[in-house]
Design a protein around this nucleic acid. Structure first.
Lengths: 107, 107
DNA sequence: TGTATATATGAACAATTGTTCATATATTTA
DNA sequence: TAAATATATGAACAATTGTTCATATATACA
């Protein structure tokens, strides 16, 4: 059978790797609900600002979030619909497997 | 706003982490096409048998693939539809972003 | 122009990850 | 039961990753 294009396998791995960290999941989950600036994310996720910025850079570089500057603040949002779909699919899978109630993804 | 359930963020991160490696992507992509036993995967992906087995264990433990023993051989398949959907969504996203032609995911 | 506020970056370190080599286990068949 | 085949596992090592601390950059406003 035909193997996957080698470059695509690496790119796809790098892409999914970005979803593979709880801090980034929290960021994406927050942005799934509404666009937010950095300081809102800092507060919402109770996370160190520097750590957040590093993670946001990774998300940006991998086209998972986009941003626009608005004066002093920078507003982040999910890059496209694939990101939300991926997140929701992951949550569904995990919920089924772990017996979570999906509707209680939020605390 | 309500943050994501902390445990779900970790579980989801662990889940996506499994997709974040080119070797595992190749395995999953192969299984997306048809179920295969270990030695078929070894040959198809030109990979070390031990490395493959280690990766298959990870995929199993995270409910991403399932398997059934058939005599001396063990046949692997994708665990459920979410896995295929996730892969396809990732490929779509990457293809759009990198200007790949999706139809040429195969070599 | 100087100060405050918001965000980004670099260096360094501990922790995690993926592979290899060697070996173990399971199943079939002689 | 012994030998052959298929698959799994453990230990060890290099490489990668995520965070923290310190500092840099950008914008607004006095």
């Amino acid at each position: 059978m035909k193997p996957i294009n080698e470059e695509l396998a690496y790119d796809l791995g790098d892409f999914f790797k970005i979803f593979g960290d709880p801090t980034r999941i929290k960021i994406l989950y927050a942005l799934l609900q509404r666009d937010m600036c950095v300081s809102e994310l800092v507060e919402a996720l109770a996370i160190n600002q520097s750590a957040l910025s590093h993670q946001l850079r990774l998300l940006r570089q991998n086209d998972i979030v986009k941003f626009k500057r608005d004066g002093k603040t920078v507003i982040y949002s999910l890059d496209d619909e694939h990101v939300g779909i991926l997140l929701k699919n992951g949550i569904e899978h995990i919920s089924h497997k772990n017996g979570y109630d999906e509707s209680e993804a939020y605390i």
